[in-house]
Structures are given as structure tokens and as C-alpha cells.
Amino acid sequence: MKDDRQSERGFRLLLQKYQERLYWHIRRMVTEHEDANDVLQNCLIKIFRNIRQFEGKSQLYTWLYRIATNEAISFLAQKKRQQVASLDNDESHLANKLRADAYFDGNEVQIHLQAAMEGLPEKQKLVFQLRYFEEMNYQDMSEMLGTSVGALKASFHHAVKKVETYLAGVQID
């Protein structure tokens, strides 16, 4: 019982420090708040139950990010399988969804930026998100994704060019 209370206290401290960062990481991947909340909660429960498996070989937040990323990728894959085929492409579908989202308050440029990211290959999208929005350095990203720093730099540069091209091609009021 005492152990349970200590675990809970430790878990609360961990949440205090990381819950927002993990939430925003997941939210940018899955877009909608409800989905982000589901994924985050599952992710945090997994973290709580497996915290003893953290071996200290990497930084704690890298380990946490890895779990959150895997959880979000699994969620997106499952959602994609369940989605009925739409006449809209992924980018315009996302743009419409964001415009209707009560928890999205961005302007058209920001909507197009999200839509541009939606068109990127999964790994490129993740690298772009980690670098551009979350400002993660390449070394940490390399530890987290198991990819070389050089490959990550190349991936980010490709992603930036694709996003820029997309934005240049859309009519922005």
C-alpha cells in the first residue's frame, strides 16, 4: 500500500513535468483533441506500468517520447484502416476538419501548413514536427528514432521543401 502511494506520487511528478510536452507531441500527430487525449492517457498508463523497464540508457524524455510516438502511430494506422474511403484527399480532408474543430483556432495559413504536413510520408512528417514545432535537436531525435543524424537532417530538409512548395501552390487570403 505504501509502495502504491509512492508510485502515485512519483507518477504525479512525472505528469507535472512531461504531460504537456507529450500532449502537444501527440496532438500535432493526431490533430484532434479527443484523439490526443485518448492516445496520451493510454501512453501515460503504459509509462506508469513500465517505468521500471526504463534502463537509463537514454534520457527519460527520449524514452517517453518514443512511447508516445509509437502509441500515436499505432492509433493513426488503426484509424486509417477504419476510415471509409473519401473523395477528398488527405490534405483537404484535414483542412476541413480543422476549420470545424472547436479546439483549433488557427488562421488559413496555419491550416494549410497542417494540410501540407499531412501530405508528407509518415517518417518525414514526424521529423518535420519534432524539428520545426518541438525544436528537438538531431542528436536526441536520432536516439529516439534510431536514425542517423545525417539521415534526419536530409529528411527535415526534404520535408521543408515539400511544405514550402505546397504553401506556394495554395491560394492564401
Binding site: 502515485e8 507535472q16 492517457q41 479546439y103 483556432d105 496555419q110
Partner: peptide, 23 residues
């Protein structure tokens, strides 16, 4: 530009208790 994504009010404050209850 500012982060365009929002959360329900008090979301982060309520999250720890919600998670502990669920656990």
C-alpha cells in the same frame, strides 16, 4: 505564430486525477 491548437479549459489540471482514478 501562436500555437493554433487549444485544449478544453482546465484539461491539464484535471488530467493527473483522471489518470490515477483510471489506474
Amino acid at each position: 505564430q501562436e500555437n493554433p491548437f487549444k485544449t478544453p479549459e482546465g484539461y491539464f489540471a484535471a488530467l493527473p486525477d483522471e489518470l490515477i482514478t483510471r489506474l
